[in-house]
Design a binder for these strands. Structure first.
Length: 353
DNA sequence: AACCCGGGGTG
DNA sequence: CACCCAGGGTT
């Protein structure tokens, strides 16, 4: 009985308070899919402009499927978690060219697609096809943990199963999409991580955490990850014709698929250009015997969720560069990490000194 | 199960 | 500064 009241109250709250968002005006699986991928681990305020750009540039899945990967990555630039963009493009091509542009019409079929896991498959299936599968995202963990007093860690195997199971009991089978969006909206707007609006909450009288004064302790999450510190030395070649060298990151780690200047990573910060001329560094200079100077004395600190990167940019002036070099004015056409985008924007306006 | 993958917002 | 965000893939 408590469960039924929970679901009913939540949906009532949602219908009265939901935000007007562009993906809420459609049941087109392509648009729902696009929005769900973009919003993975991403706030709506951050993802919304990207959604508008993608739907404008790629109105149909065929437009997305036919685009070069570099174009997709360029539009994705700044949104982070770039594997999402690569998987998005891969799945677009699969659906467009192997499935006639039609998405699978149920949870199990959607789950097979690259980049679509339990959450996204549930979201699309419930919103587009009225399949009663419950989403469990960060909002759902928080709302359920507080309201029902669940202390299992949300990032343990046991916790993940328990929350999914409870969510499946709570879903309204007659309007699964509305229920799923209701609990997420409620978690985002009302039952927020900090300063939740308990005083005006319609579920207050039956909420475990409110009654026990444990709102601040739920949900439970196990430890945090360690942070790695890295030192990047970017070699910014600059010929007399204002050309430079750029390469694509193909390795497994961060920023796969994006472009960057030739990079030398070191264990410690590098202070003098003498070091650039020795050992490892020499092979990157292509025997051009360039004149070297340090662009930024103080390293630029770029913070990722699991790494702190300290970057120095070394300007290597040479007479000429190899044919595969590019003009610096075309730097802005390539998808690059935000760290480099910021440098490039300043550098291009600085007369290159 | 543990680890990796971005960038920005919040208190 | 710590924590979080409409999670998914890999090992």
């Amino acid at each position: 009985m408590k469960n039924k009241n929970f679901t009913k109250t939540l949906i009532k709250w949602y219908l009265a308070n939901k935000r007007d968002l562009p993906w809420r005006n459609t049941n087109d699986p392509y648009r729902i899919w696009l929005s769900e991928i973009m919003l993975q681990q991403t706030r709506i305020a951050q993802g919304l402009p990207y959604y508008l750009t993608f739907t404008r540039e790629y109105p149909t899945i065929f437009d997305l499927a036919n685009a070069p990967q570099d174009d997709v990555l360029k539009l994705w630039q700044g949104l982070g978690y770039y594997s999402r963009a690569r998987n998005l493009h891969s799945t677009a091509k699969k659906v467009a060219f192997e499935m006639n542009g039609v998405f699978p019409n149920d949870y199990q079929g959607l789950l097979k697609l690259k980049g679509i896991g339990d959450y996204t498959a549930s979201a699309i299936a419930s919103i587009c096809y009225d399949e009663p599968v419950a989403v469990v995202d960060g909002n759902v963990y928080r709302v359920l943990a507080r309201y029902f007093g669940i202390v299992l860690p949300i990032n343990s195997g046991e916790g993940i199963k328990a929350f999914k199971s409870l969510a499946m009991e709570l879903i309204d089978p007659k309007q699964p999409g509305t229920y799923n969006q209701a609990i997420m909206e409620f978690g985002a707007m009302h039952c927020s991580p900090k300063l939740p609006l308990c005083h005006e909450c319609t579920l207050r009288t039956s909420c475990f955490a409110y009654a026990e004064n444990k709102v601040g302790e739920l949900p439970v999450k196990l430890k945090k990850q360690k942070i790695t510190i890295r030192h990047f030395n970017y070699l910014v070649f600059l010929s007399e014709e204002n050309r430079t060298l750029l390469q694509q990151r193909t390795s497994k780690g961060i920023w796969q698929g994006l472009y960057e200047f030739p990079l030398i990573e070191t264990e410690q910060e590098v202070f003098t250009e003498d070091l650039i001329l020795t050992e490892d560094f020499q092979k990157h200079t292509h025997h051009l015997d360039p004149e070297i100077r340090l662009y930024n004395n103080k390293p630029i600190k770029h913070i990722l969720s699991h790494q702190h990167i300290y970057a120095k940019f070394w300007i290597l002036s040479t007479k000429r560069l190899i044919k595969s070099s590019i003009h610096i004015n075309s730097l802005t056409e390539y998808p690059v990490p935000v760290l480099l985008e910021k440098f490039i924007n300043v550098f291009l306006q600085s007369d290159y000194d």
